[in-house]
């Protein structure tokens, strides 16, 4: 078995169709108003049950969660495999970090089970929506510290935001399973973010350059995971930034503010790109 596994080789059955961020962003349509200060759906785009397309949007997001969990499982499994146990320098990671990654693999496997059950409950077929492989790409780095930054801090941070949104959705809709399950998954994600923060600090304790590079990488991934502003403080973003749970996971206020700014920038950049594309197409 190879040491590193490319995203293009992720194994799926025939029901799943994969896409990537480049293709996703090449779609020149937009769910948000692209004219300056315009909004497409009244006061808010937040994913709440009172949206006319609430169930369909929730189904799509739940499927996104499920494939995201599959990739998170694959990413954690690969990190447990790809690096030899050592002192953390070079291509090695501490033995205890390998153990944590194995534990995370189990957690993510349960999350796949949970989200597959929830998808079924909501009437979604496996593979009904395309799978964006951007999450695994963040787990592909050859530097284990970048994986911690990309996966445990950025990806799992996004998961905190998404699960908080879905938990609220279930609570408002009175869905007895959705709220219950999201609450459990949220607890795991807070653990994973904390695990990533602790290891990142520990492994780079005597290597400030490596730490700086990891945090820089995390910002890049955070912006990518904003999905063009789909996640953010703005009520134009379907998914909010879960400040309280991020705080529990060890994010500082400054870090969350930075993410919020990046989300805002990503939203504006996306709107500008869509506006240009639609003008060019004459629609």
């Amino acid at each position: 078995m190879r040491q590193f596994f490319p995203v293009d080789d992720l194994a799926r059955d025939e029901r799943f169709v994969q896409t990537n961020m480049a293709k996703r962003m090449a779609d020149s349509r937009s769910a948000v108003g692209v004219k300056k200060s315009a909004k497409s759906r009244g006061a808010s785009n937040r994913l709440t049950p009172d949206r006319h397309d609430a169930s369909e949007a929730a189904r799509s997001l739940m499927h996104g969660i499920m494939v995201g969990e599959i990739q998170a499982l694959e990413g954690a499994g690969r990190t447990a495999h790809d690096f030899a146990a050592g002192d953390g320098s070079g291509d090695t990671i501490p033995f205890e970090l390998k153990l944590d990654m194995a534990r995370q693999a189990w957690d993510e496997a349960r999350h796949v089970e949970i989200s597959a059950k929830l998808s079924d409950w909501m009437g979604t077929e496996l593979g009904q929506f395309s799978e964006n492989t951007v999450l695994f790409e963040a787990a592909c780095s050859n530097d284990p510290v970048l994986r911690l930054a990309g996966v445990n801090r950025a990806l799992e941070g996004l998961a905190i935001d998404v699960f908080t949104q879905m938990k609220e959705f279930g609570q408002l809709a009175g869905d007895p399973f959705l709220e219950f399950c999201e609450d459990w998954m949220l607890a795991d994600e807070v653990t994973h973010v904390k695990m990533g923060s602790d290891w990142l600090r520990k492994v780079t304790e005597n290597d400030p350059d490596r730490r700086a590079k990891a945090l820089e990488f995390q910002q890049v991934v955070d912006k990518l995971f904003s999905f063009g502003g789909a996640r953010g403080d703005s009520d134009e973003s379907p998914i909010g930034l879960a400040r309280r749970f991020r705080e529990l996971a060890g994010f500082t206020d400054d870090e969350v503010d930075t993410i919020a700014e990046m989300d805002h920038d990503a939203l504006e950049e996306r709107k500008a790109a869509v506006r240009l594309a639609q003008e060019a197409a004459g629609v």
């Binding site: 609430a54 169930s55 189904r59 409950w121 909501m122 009437g123 809709a173 009175g174 869905d175």
Partner: peptide, 13 residues
Amino acid sequence: QQYRYDFRNRFGF
């Protein structure tokens, strides 16, 4: 099941 879920979301579980 999709329709059922939509219906439950509007009328109750």
